[in-house]
Design a protein around this nucleic acid. Sequence first.
RNA 1: GCUCGCAUAGCUCAGGCGGUAGAGCACUUCAUUGGUAAUGAAGAGGUCCCCGGUUCAACUCCGGGUGUGAGCACCA
Length: 643
Amino acid sequence: MPKITLPDGSAREYENPVTVMEVAESIGPGLAKATLAGRVDGKLVDSSTVLSADADLAIITERDGDGLEVIRHSCAHLMAQAVQRLFPKAQVTIGPVVEDGFFYDFAFSRAFTPEDLQAIEKVMGDIVKENLTVERSIMSRSDAVTMFKEMGEEYKVQIIESIPGDEDLSFYRQGDFIDLCRGPHVPSTGAFKAFKLTSVAGAYWRGDASNEMLQRIHGTAWGSKKDLKLFLQRLEEAEKRDHRKLGKHLDLFHFQEEAPGMAFWHPKGWSIYQTVQRYMRKVQDEHNYKEINTPQLVDYSLWEKSGHASKFSDEMFSVESENRMYAIKPMNCPCHIQVFNQGLKSYRDLPLRLAEFGSCHRYEPSGSMHGLMRVRSFVQDDGHIFCTEEQIQAEVADFMAMLFAVYKDFGFDEVILRLSTRPEKRVGSDEVWDKSEQSLKDALNATGLPWELVPGEGAFYGPKIECSLKDCMGRVQQCGTIQVDFSTPGRLGAHYVAEDSSKKEPVMLHRAVLGSFERFLGILIEHYAGAMPTWLAPEQVVILNITDKQGDYCLNFEESLKNKGFRVSTDLRNEKIGFKIREHTLQRIPYLAVVGDKEVESGTVAVRKRGGEDLGTMTFDDFCTLLSQDVARFGRSEQLDNS
RNA sequence: GCUCGCAUAGCUCAGGCGGUAGAGCACUUCAUUGGUAAUGAAGAGGUCCCCGGUUCAACUCCGGGUGUGAGCACCA
C-alpha cells in the first residue's frame, strides 16, 4: 500500500503498487497527458516506473527543467530512429542533450546534406504520429554485445565495453529502434510537440582528433511550438548582433586574405579600442600597476628557457634574421620577468605589479579562428604581480575588486567564477599548492559570490581563477583570469633579497581582466548590438543642418563640442533631414543634434537620441552637461537606457 | 588541423545544365533647400578568389590552393 507524497505536501494512498503514470492519471487526465517522467525521492525515472513503497513523487512535465531534458534526450532517439529508417546502414553512436537541444553522432559513408536533414525531420514527424510506446528493458552486458554485433552497431559494442562494472544495462525500445540508454525517456513518441534539426557537421568519435570523423546532427526541441519559436527568434537576434556583421556595417574593422586572423582596425573601431585601453590604463594606474612595454621579437632561446617552445613551438611564429632565430612573442610573461630581473630586487619592492598592453601572435589552427573572438594577432591587458606567498591573497582580492568594477562599467553585472586546482602533472610541493589554493579560495569567498570548483584543471605551475561574464543574450564568455605561478620566475632566474638577506624566488601572479582587446571588443559589440554606450561610442554626436543656411552655425557648434572633448561630426550634406536621421540612427550614433533656423535664432540645438526619443531644444551648456553625465556613467546597467 | 558548405560590383545578394554578367543600397553629377527613419533624375563601377586541367570556348565542369561559415579537435 504505497503512500505517495506530492510536492505540495499532499499524500495519496494506493491499494497496489502504481506507476508514475497511474498516479498522474489518478490526479487528472490533463496531467496524465502532459506527463513525461517522474522524480521519485529526487531521482528522475520513467513514467512507467512502478512505485511499490512509500515515496515522494513529482510528476515531470514540459514545464519542468528536467522535463525539457527528457524531451531533448528522447528527441535524440527519435532522430536516430528516423535516420536509420532512411539510411539503414548508418550506425548510431552517442546522442546527448546539450544547451538548447541535443545532437546525435552517426557513422555513415557520406556526409548528410541539408536535404537529408529535411527528410529526416519529416520521418521524425511520421514517427511522432505513429505514437510508438517507449519501453525500458534490462539486458546483461553479454546479451547486449551480442545484439549490437548482430545489428552491425560496432560503436555501441565499443561503448558497452568501455562502461565499467558488471551491472545490467538499460535499453529503450520504440518500434523497431532500440538504444542503450540510462533514460529516463518520454512515455511515447507522441509526446513531441516542437523540434527542429538545426545543423550537420563532422565530429570525432569520442572527441579524439586521431579517431575517425562521424556525422553530427544538431537539433533543438521544446515543450511547445511557442518556445521553439522564441528560441529561433533568439538565434536570429544573435545573428543580427554578430560582431563580424556589425563590424562591417558600422565600419569598425575588417579582415582580409593576406592577414588571416588579424584585424585591420578602421577609425571607428580603433576609437572604441582606444577608449577601452585608456580606461584600463587609468584603472590599472589606480591599482598601482606600472605599465611597461616589451619587444615583439625575442630570441628563441628565451622561449626554450621558459618552456614554451617545447610545448607550443607549432603555434609560434618565428623569424630568422642574420642566423638568429626569433619568435614573435606569443605571450608576455617571460618578458615581464626580464624587466623584473633588471636591478637587484628587495622584499621591499614587492608586490611589484607590472602591466602591459602586450601584443601577441599565435599561430592558431585555421579552423579555430572566429572573427575577433579568436585571432592570431591580439593584445592582452596583461599583468604580472611579483610577490611573496603571504601577499597572494591580498593581491588576488584587489584584482577581483578591480575586475568586478570594470565589468560593471562595461554593463556586465553577472560574473561567473571558477577555481581550477592542481592537475596531476604539476610542479611545486603540495604544501605550496595547499597554500595558494587556499589563498584563491579565501579571495573567492571574500567576494560573497558563488563559485565553482574545477579540480585538476589548473595550470602545471599553479591554480587559477577564471572569471566569465554573461552578456545580454545570456551567453557566458570567459575573459578575466588570475593564476598563481611558482615555477616560471625560478626558471627564468627571478629572485629578490628577503628580510633575512636570503635569496628567494618571488611568486608570480598572471592576470588579465579583459583577456584580449580584440575578443573583448567582439563581446562588447554583440552585447550592445553595436549601439555602444556614449562613453565608448566612436561618434557621440552628429550635428545635422536642415538647410545650407545653418552650415556655419553647425560647424561652430561642432568645434565647441570638440573643445570640450566630445567626439562629434557634422553632416552638412544636401539631403533631407529625415534621410540623415535615418542614416545616423542606423549607424547607432547616440545623439543627433538638429539645427534649423529656429535653433540658430535661439542659439540652441534640437537633440534626439538614437532610440528616437526627442529631448527638445537645448543650449550648448545644457547639452554639454547632458553628454558629460552620460559619458560619466559608463555602461553601468542600473542606469543604462535602452535607447 | 579534420568533415561538409560557401567565394559574383564598396555592401547585401540574384544569375546562367559552357558562348566574359544583373538588382537594391552606397558612389559621382545635376536638379531640389526640405523640420525628425529613405527627394527625383542621370552616370560610373566587375580578372565572377587564385593556379592548373578539360574544351573551339571556362565565371560556370574537373583538380589543387587560399580565405571564409557551421561543427569537431586545439587554445600558454
